[in-house]
Amino acid sequence: MINVMKIDGYDAVINYDPDIEMFRGEFINLNGGADFYAADINGLQTEGKASLAMFLKMCEEDGVSPKKQYSGKFNVRLSPELHESLVLKAAAAGKSINQLVVDSISHTVADGF
């Protein structure tokens, strides 16, 4: 199931909330929170545009960039056994651990949604 909706060039993850019997959209990669709710796709698009417009207006008023900036670094926690296997696999491939992880993630992300 593809649960990403693009609204005015920004991505939002969509999930269904059975407790309120509505879909919830949440924009990602923003410097703050912007979410919206609706019962159907048309409503999600309408509410998403309104939520995004409000968020962008607030960013402009506050003089901040709406998009989150990423450093390109993140920590990963894994078991000692998996860490050991990763070191072995990287060495056998003639790569650093970092390059093996980047290659693996690139392959996974390139598969798309």
Score class of each variant (00 low, 15 high):
Asn15Gln: 09
Asp40His: 10
Glu26Asn: 04
Ile20Ala: 06
Pro18Ala: 05
Asp8Gly: 00
Phe36Asp: 01
Asp40Phe: 02
Asp35Asn: 14
Ser79Met: 06
Tyr10Thr: 00
Thr108Ser: 13
Asn42Val: 01
Lys89Ser: 11
Asp19Lys: 08
Leu30Lys: 07
Ala50Val: 08
Ala34Ser: 15
Met1Ser: 15
Asn29Pro: 01
Glu47Asp: 07
Gly25Glu: 09
Met58Val: 11
Ala53Pro: 10
Ser71Gln: 10
Leu44Gly: 02
Arg24Glu: 13
His83Ser: 09
Leu78Asn: 03
Val109Thr: 03
Met22Asn: 11
Val102Arg: 15
Leu82Gly: 00
Met58Asn: 14
Lys6Thr: 02
Ser96Thr: 15
Lys95Leu: 15
Gly25Asp: 07
Val101Asn: 01
Ala90Asn: 13
Ala92Leu: 14
Ala34Asp: 06
Asp103Cys: 03
Ala39Pro: 04
Leu30Trp: 06
Asn42Gly: 13
Val76Pro: 09
Glu21Ile: 00
His107Ile: 03
Gln99Ile: 04
Ile105Gln: 07
Leu100Glu: 08
Gly33Pro: 00
Lys67Met: 11
Ile97Met: 10
Ala93Asp: 14
Gly48Pro: 06
Ile28Leu: 13
Leu30Tyr: 07
Val64Gln: 10
Lys68Asn: 04
Ile28Ala: 06
Met58Ala: 13
Met22Glu: 12
Ile105Arg: 04
Glu81Gln: 14
Val101Leu: 12
Tyr16Trp: 13
Asp103Lys: 06
Leu56Phe: 10
Leu56Glu: 10
Met54Pro: 00
Gly25Met: 06
Val101Pro: 01
Glu81Ala: 14
Ala53Met: 02
Phe27His: 09
Asp103Leu: 03
Phe55Asn: 05
Glu60Leu: 04
Val4Gln: 05
Asp17Ser: 09
Phe36Pro: 03
Ile2Trp: 07
Lys89Met: 11
Asp17Lys: 07
Met54Gln: 11
Leu52Arg: 10
Lys68His: 04
Ala90Thr: 14
Glu61Leu: 08
Gly94Arg: 08
Met22Gly: 03
Ala38Phe: 06
Lys89Gly: 01
Ala34Glu: 07
Met1Ala: 11
Gly25Gln: 08
Asp35Lys: 00
Lys95Met: 14
Arg77Pro: 11
Ser51Arg: 03
Ile14His: 06
Phe27Asp: 08
Phe23His: 12
Tyr70Cys: 03
Gln99Gly: 08
Asp17Val: 12
Phe74Ser: 10
Phe55Pro: 01
Glu21Val: 00
Phe36Met: 02
Leu56Met: 10
Asn42Gln: 12
Asp17His: 07
Pro18Tyr: 05
Asp40Met: 02
Lys73Met: 11
